[in-house]
Nucleic acid binder design. Sequence first.
RNA 1: GGCUCGGUGGCAGAGUGGUAAUGCAGCGGAUUGCAAAUCCGUCAACGCCGGUUCGAUUCCGACCCGAGCCUCCA
Length: 458
Amino acid sequence: MSLKIYNTMSGAKEEFEPLVADTVTMYVCGPTVYNLAHIGNARPVVVFDTLFRLLQTQYGSVTYARNITDVDDKIIAAAKEGDRSIESVTDEYTAKYREDMAQLNALPPSLEPHATHNIDAMIELTSTLIEKGHAYESQGHVLFAVESMEDYGKLSNRSIDDMLAGARVQVADYKRHPGDFVLWKPADITDPGWDSPWGRGRPGWHLECSAMIRAHLGETIDIHGGGRDLIFPHHENEIAQSRCAHGGDYVKYWMHNAYLDIDGEKMSKSLGNFRTVRDLLQSYRGEVLRFALLSAHYRSPLNFSVELLEQARSNLDGFYGTLREVADMEIDVDVPLADEPFYQALNDDLNTPLAIAELHALAKQLNKAAAEDKPQLKARIIAAGNLLGILGQDPEEWLQGDAAADAISAEAIETLIQERVDAKANRNFARADEIRDSLLAEGVVLEDSREGTQWKRG
RNA sequence: GGCUCGGUGGCAGAGUGGUAAUGCAGCGGAUUGCAAAUCCGUCAACGCCGGUUCGAUUCCGACCCGAGCCUCCA
């Protein structure tokens, strides 16, 4: 069972083969830390976290780097607006980003390089590009000369001429060609800046990823991921920087996720139609958000809505309900992943919706399995859940734990259930139903069985 | 204008050159004191028009509709 990945560069699914046997290097573009992450920003995090988990099942060494962009115009603007230091802005939002992503069950990446910790590498890269004739200094800026690169535009499949046709490239008198992009720009005395051969300044947006990949992962990496909107110009320009500086390949497999839509439109900061993860966590647990994000294939747009979240929750409740029935069952059963349909689904370019469908099939089997078959089915469900980053909680806690601040307490519920058991024993069904209805009004659902009454918050 | 990507049942969402997964919702049944949960069954879909083919939802072409990138954006 081998992994297939859709490579943006070739436009086709390819067999995944790492450059070095049993070793995978992966880099995903992380946040610019000047505000809270929205749920659209969380999609690549969840998608590539799932890939990270999958890779770890088949390669001995998997290094996953996700950067923190902590120098940028928007950060400077946010600091000025809040009348606070750059560091207090970036520290706050870096911490909040980590917290939010942890709520989504995203594992911490192996490395989390900060742009400001790698300025030397960026200056060095810029110098190399100038030496090799791919960059030039102009009015305090250093710019990459796109015309100096033979196949610039290959990733996004556009030519330099095409870009001019759009006539939306920023024209600036310090550029030789309108498509040239900034490697290094001068900094105002009040702005953050670093001394460089070209004066005090700061790096352009694209530079950090090229420099940090080179510094932390090597000249060529296996997988580089991010949102579709990064294909151009960001990733295109990374390729230009790295290939022109070092020669050789930069990235073997390019992966790009589609975005979240709201009412058929892209969710984005500039459109203002976004919901922050932090805000959504007030109403939905992180695992629900994660499940919702995985319910569509990562290369397809996903329409984000209340209905989607309710379906995600309903699905998870079902799985946890199944697991609650076998909560005390030991599962020291080996699960040969290669044979598992959910594993095969994930290996096919991370087909998470199909993997979830296979999870449903397993749950159904478990619900009606003979006792001796249950442990292995439970083990398989847990194994699938681990890969998807779900179903890791105690089922009872999941089903009973999602209580609002003013909700009825577990103790009060148990007391009423006991009273209802007594009423039923006396065949006082009117009282029993009255108790059940009153609990339902509190959002508590009772489930009677031969073994007794269970409850959950619905 | 250039370059991408889509349009599958009420909703979400896989997939395939030949009976179109799965989930949610609906309906019927089993079970239950009645429910819930579970199980069984069931209704219902491939944008439009051509072409290739024995056969197309799937391949090709045109068209309609939608989204995205080309500017900060996951």
